[in-house]
């Protein structure tokens, strides 16, 4: 008789996974970062504590800490090797980052939240 774990595992579906971007977590004391296009990736938005601070208006009263989430979206079809190139270029430009999270689409649907 299958266990509940067995039944749960059997529900796994095959999904098409496509790399579409990277969330970069940048640490800086210099305020909202500015980026040119880096390799195959272009910055789409930057948030701080979950609130979008670029592009668009940001209240001068908004509490910002020194940790920014910078969402880079691919400008063409990309592979994992493009992420390595991107990270290398970002580091060489002097950006200090705490983590990178690859962004994938699953069956064409984004597997990541939008910014507030």
């Amino acid at each position: 008789m299958p266990t509940c774990t067995d039944i749960a595992k059997a529900t796994k579906k095959k999904r098409e996974i496509k790399l579409v971007g990277i969330d970069m977590y940048i640490i800086t004391e210099k305020g909202i970062p500015k980026f040119d296009e880096i390799g195959a990736f272009k910055c789409e938005f930057i948030s701080n504590r979950g609130t979008k601070v670029w592009p668009g208006f940001v209240s001068p009263d908004l509490l910002q800490v020194n940790w920014y989430r910078c969402r880079f979206m691919a400008t063409k079809n990309v592979q994992d090797a493009d992420v390595n190139t991107f990270l290398d270029a970002l580091t060489k430009k002097g950006w200090w980052w705490s983590a990178a999270q690859k962004l994938w689409n699953y069956d064409g649907e984004p597997g990541f939240s939008k910014a507030y």
Binding site: D23, S47, R49, V65, Q101
Partner: peptide, 28 residues
């Protein structure tokens, strides 16, 4: 009212794993 799991930082980190960042800051 502005931090914690409400920072809207969620990812499907694999096709069967979802992750939500709990963000707590000192000034917040």
């Amino acid at each position: 009212n502005t931090e914690d799991c409400y920072a809207a930082i969620e990812h499907m980190v694999s096709d069967e794993v979802a992750q939500c960042l709990k963000v707590i800051t000192w000034p917040g």
